[in-house]
Amino acid sequence: MSTATAKKPRLTTSAMIASIASEGQRTIAAPFGKALVTLAEQRPEIVGLTADLAKYTDLHLFGQAYPERFFQMGMAEQLLMAAAGGMAKEGFMPFATTYAVFGTRRAFDFVHQVIAEENLNVKLCCALPGLTTGYGPSHQAAEDLALVRAIPGMTVIDPCDALDIEQAVPAIAAHNGPVYMRLLRGNVPLVLDEYDYKFELGKAKLLRGGNDVLLIASGIMTMRSLEVASALAADQVDVAVLHVPTIKPLDTATILAEASRSGRLVVVAENHTTVGGLGEAVATALLTAGVSPQFRQIALPDAFLDAGALPTLHDRYGISTDAMAKTIKTWLA
C-alpha cells in the first residue's frame, strides 16, 4: 500500500500575527491603542508616529481619534526614530511604533544618537518582541532587550498582559526620558487582574509566594510562570513568581531580597535570548551583591530561531508552560 494514500496530519501554521492567548483565555483587544487614546485626551503633547505599521501596533486607534496628531512615516524606520526625536525637541511626546526587529536592529543608531544621547522624551512601543511570531529571524526580535539595555538612559519595559500595558502607558508618559516598551497587540491576554498587582515603573512585584522555586520573569513569561506555578502545585512543588516588568532600571533591591531567601532554586524566565536580557541582568545583580543561590535560566537559545507555529516553537525552545514545568522538575530532581 502506498504511503501517499495515507491520511496526512494537519500541518500547523506560522501566522505572522499569531495570538499569544491560549484557547479560551480572557483577552482585551488593543489595550495599548485604547490606553493611548484615553491618555492623549489629557496630554495634548502626545503625538503618534509609525512606519507603515499602525494597524499592526494598535496605533490606528490613536490615528482615528486624533488624525492631526498622527504621522505616517512610511516604511522608513530611520526616519521614524529621527523624526520622533525631532518632534520631542519641539516639545511633543512622540509614541513611535513599529516591530521590535525594526525599532532596534534596523534603526539602532537613530535610537542611540538622536533619541537617547539627548535624553529625548520619545516612547518606542515595539510589537512582536522576542519569539512572538513564527516568521523566522526577519521578524523575531530575540535580542531586542540586549540592544536597548545597552543604551545609556533608556528605560526598558516588558509588560505581561493587557492590564500591565494599560497601566504602563500613563506610567511611561509620566517619566521624562526615552522608553522602550515591548508591545503586545491585538487580543492580549488578561492575567494580572487576578492578583494584587499594580504596574509601577522600576518596581518588581511578587505575584505569589512559594518555598521551593523563585521564578523571576518579565513579559509573557510572567504569564507562563504563573501557569507553571499552578501546574507544579499539583506536584507539591511550591513556586514563587516575581514579575519584573521594568528591565532597566532593574529593581535590584526587590530581586536581591527575594533571591536571598535560602533554600530556593532561582530561575529567570525570559522571552529573549540568553544573551544580554533579564537573566544576565539578574545574575550580575546577584553576583555583585554576593548572593549566590542555585541559579538557572529559561530563555531562547543564542541562535537564529526556526520558522513555524508559535506553540511548536515555544515547546521547541523550552518557553511553553509544559516545557518550563518539565525543565524545572528536572532541575529539582
Binding site: R69, F71, A82, E90, F92
Partner: peptide, 19 residues
C-alpha cells in the same frame, strides 16, 4: 553620525507646523 540631520529636521518641521 552622518545622515541623521535631515530626518530629525523632518520631525522638527512637523512639530513646528503642528504648534
Amino acid at each position: 553620525s552622518l545622515g541623521q540631520g535631515l530626518p530629525i529636521a523632518v520631525g522638527m518641521a512637523l512639530g513646528l507646523r503642528l504648534k
